[in-house]
Amino acid sequence: MPQKLRLAVVGLGRVSKSHLPAVRELADKMELVALVTRDEGKLRQEAEQWEGVKTYTSYDDAVHDPDIDAFLLLLPHHLHAEYSINALRAGKHVLVEKPMAMNVREAEQMVSAAGEKGATLMIGQSRRFFSPVIESIKRVRAKEIGDLININALLLAYMDKPATDWWKDDSKIGGFIIPLWGSHILDYILWAYDKLPLSVYAQGHSNNPNWSGEDEVAISLNFGEGQMANVLMSFNAGTRPADAEGLTGKRIWSTQNSIYERYVIGTNGIIQLKDEYELLVNGEKQDECDRTNANFTRQLEEFADAIREGREPLASGQEIIRVMKVIDACFESIRTHQVVTI
């Protein structure tokens, strides 16, 4: 492989606005060689911002381009497995947005394809890459608060309408709040405990006709040996800003208008994360970072470094299979109203 990673970005939807600046920031480690989307208008517009970039409306053509080493896949959830596997089988490295896939069966197929070709597969669990989050895990590993007993996570937010049309379609998104945000929270919990729970119990309901998936969720995880975790998420909470006529405003959720906290409880103290931007240990602030998209740069850098160093990246496909197992169990529990063992 050349010194710089030769990268293709697939998908130019809303999330690309966070990823593409990271590609530019890492110009010393990678080169954007191709953009891929079926939307010719978006393709032309974005290509104008990059010197010498190739453009493809056919993903199959891009996969067979020998000048591409790796793909950054920014696609609807139901395409994650298919597009990842196609690239991996062609010997390309893949960083795919979260959630990893629609279910654990697809996730296992992705990992198998990567293993067959010796390719790197990383999942875009981007919210791992804020410094307070990374520091919190270091302190958990160092047993600064003793042994873990419980992790409680709370997300209270308000979303009136989906940010993109495919979020309305359960066959493309695979639910709603669980894949959109629960995938981040569950990933953090499993990362902290570094193991799967023994069982999962979940309740979920949909209250908004603008989508079919769940927007109110309660999840309880039992890790055994007195260890547990609880997740409460709502897309029906938070301030509803008034418009010019004083009527309730319509808004797509943003972290600026929500409550998002995690409490990591140990036998000898407590760690608190306020969003991903502030870390407190036993009530005292230990770390804080700006509200920027720097996490996407750190994530992409980890991908490039892992490929160059021939190692598994943080949030590798093999690791994130655990998240998919828990997500599958959540939906089974919601459907059956039963505790699900893993």
Rank of each mutant, 00 (worst) to 15 (best):
A47G: 04
K117Q: 14
Q299T: 00
H93Q: 06
Q45M: 06
L232N: 11
V339D: 12
A22W: 04
I123C: 11
Y201T: 10
E135D: 15
L72Q: 08
V323R: 13
N86A: 10
Y260L: 08
L12D: 13
E302P: 00
V200L: 02
L74H: 03
V231R: 11
G204S: 03
R298M: 14
F176H: 04
A202R: 00
T37G: 09
G174R: 04
Q109V: 11
L232Y: 08
L35P: 02
L88A: 03
H93P: 03
S136D: 12
P197Q: 02
V53C: 13
T164C: 03
A202K: 02
Q299L: 07
P132R: 15
E332S: 11
G13Y: 10
K4Q: 03
V15D: 08
Q109E: 15
R291P: 08
N103Q: 05
G124E: 13
I270D: 02
S131D: 12
R89C: 04
R14K: 14
G317R: 11
W167E: 07
L73T: 03
A329C: 10
R44H: 09
A107P: 11
T341C: 11
S220G: 15
I270F: 02
N210P: 01
E31T: 00
S234F: 01
L232K: 14
L196S: 09
N210G: 03
D60W: 01
L247K: 07
N207Q: 14
K250T: 03
W50G: 04
L75W: 01
E284K: 12
H205D: 11
V33M: 02
D170E: 13
D67N: 12
A157L: 02
Q3H: 10
A142E: 13
A47C: 10
D60K: 10
W181P: 00
V133P: 05
G182C: 07
W50S: 04
V9W: 01
S206G: 15
M102E: 06
T55A: 03
A294K: 08
E302N: 11
Y56A: 06
V53E: 09
L20C: 08
N293Y: 11
E284W: 08
S16V: 05
I334D: 01
A304M: 09
Y83F: 06
V23G: 12
M100T: 11
